[in-house]
Computed example of a mutant assay.
Amino acid sequence: MSNLLMIEDDARLAGMVSDYLGASDFVVSHATDAQTGLSRLQSAGVDLVILDLMLPDMDGLQVCQRIRALPGTLGQVPVLMLTAKGDPMDRIIGLEMGADDYLPKPFEPRELLARIRAILRRKSAGASSGQVLQFGSLEIDRDARRVSVKGHPCDLTSYQFDLLVALAERAGRVLTRDQIMEAVRGRELEAFDRSIDVHMGRIRAAIEVDPKNPQRILTVRGVGYVFARQQD
């Protein structure tokens, strides 16, 4: 049984979501504002945060930033962002702030459930892999879900970590965006295609010496991405 925290000011929506997810053995805690949600996150074990973009006391993007700034595993908790905005730029900004996934309102409860399960499967699979991937100075510890370059930790979200692992496990092989998403989700779900590009940019910023001239994660124009095998 997983514990979810929903930070959402629409009490009616939160109640419906809580009832629906509760029937699938999820325990949902609800906070109507950002400050309450952040306090609850730090005082109770939470496996995933469902975060609304529009909150009465703080923008959801700021909340996501604050979560990512928390120490240790608290700052790595997966965040699924909800919003009534449909502008693709809002989705990009949300992902750049550290969200693992993005679901616009209105949404089907079944899709929300599927996305939550996919995120938690990725997290569980990474925790049980028990293997360290080494590429020169880049080390990917799947057991600890930690990435470092020359011993210095890299700041990645849970989803970005899984994207990096998916590429690194297939080093030298060109993968399309759909193949990458299928590898990290475990199944195909409707998604915002360009979100992969946003995440790749964040991963490059974390692991590349010069993100504008990447040497590890290379773009194959018109196809997708490839993780280079070279050592440094």
Rank of each mutant, 00 (worst) to 15 (best):
D162H: 09
R145K: 07
P153K: 02
D193W: 03
L163D: 04
V149T: 08
L189A: 08
D143V: 05
S148P: 01
A183S: 15
H152L: 11
L189N: 03
E182S: 07
I140Q: 05
R187L: 12
H152G: 00
A166C: 10
A166N: 06
R194M: 11
E139Y: 02
L167E: 10
A183Q: 13
L189E: 08
F161G: 05
F192P: 04
A166H: 06
D143F: 04
R145S: 11
F161H: 03
R146K: 02
E139W: 03
G172A: 10
A171E: 15
A168T: 12
R177I: 05
L175Y: 04
G186P: 12
D162Y: 07
R185E: 13
L167P: 14
G172H: 14
K150I: 02
F161W: 06
P153A: 00
L167Y: 11
I140M: 07
R142A: 10
D193H: 15
E169K: 14
D141M: 06
R177A: 04
L167T: 07
E188Y: 06
Q179E: 15
H152K: 13
R142Y: 02
R173K: 14
D143G: 10
A183L: 13
E139D: 02
S148M: 07
A171L: 14
Y159A: 12
L138F: 04
A144K: 12
C154D: 05
L163K: 01
G151Y: 01
G151R: 01
K150S: 15
F161E: 05
V174D: 12
E169C: 14
H152I: 08
H152Y: 03
I140W: 05
A144M: 08
T176S: 15
R194W: 06
R194P: 02
M181P: 01
R146D: 03
L189P: 00
P153C: 02
R145V: 00
V184E: 09
Q160H: 07
R173F: 11
A144Y: 04
A191Q: 09
C154K: 08
R170D: 13
A168L: 13
L164Q: 11
R185V: 01
G151E: 01
A183M: 10
L189V: 03
P153M: 01
I180F: 04
D193G: 05
T157Y: 04
D162K: 05
A183I: 09
D141L: 06
E190W: 10
C154Y: 02
A144Q: 14
F192L: 05
S148C: 05
F161D: 03
L164P: 13
Y159Q: 01
V174Y: 01
P153N: 01
M181Q: 13
K150F: 09
D141G: 04
E169D: 15
M181K: 03
F192Q: 13
E182D: 14
V149G: 02
R185I: 00
D162N: 12
I140D: 07
E188W: 05
M181D: 10
R185Q: 13
E169T: 13
V149C: 13
Y159V: 00
Q179H: 10
M181I: 09
L138H: 06
K150W: 07
F192C: 09
R173L: 14
F161I: 04
S195C: 10
S148W: 00
E188V: 02
L138N: 03
A144S: 08
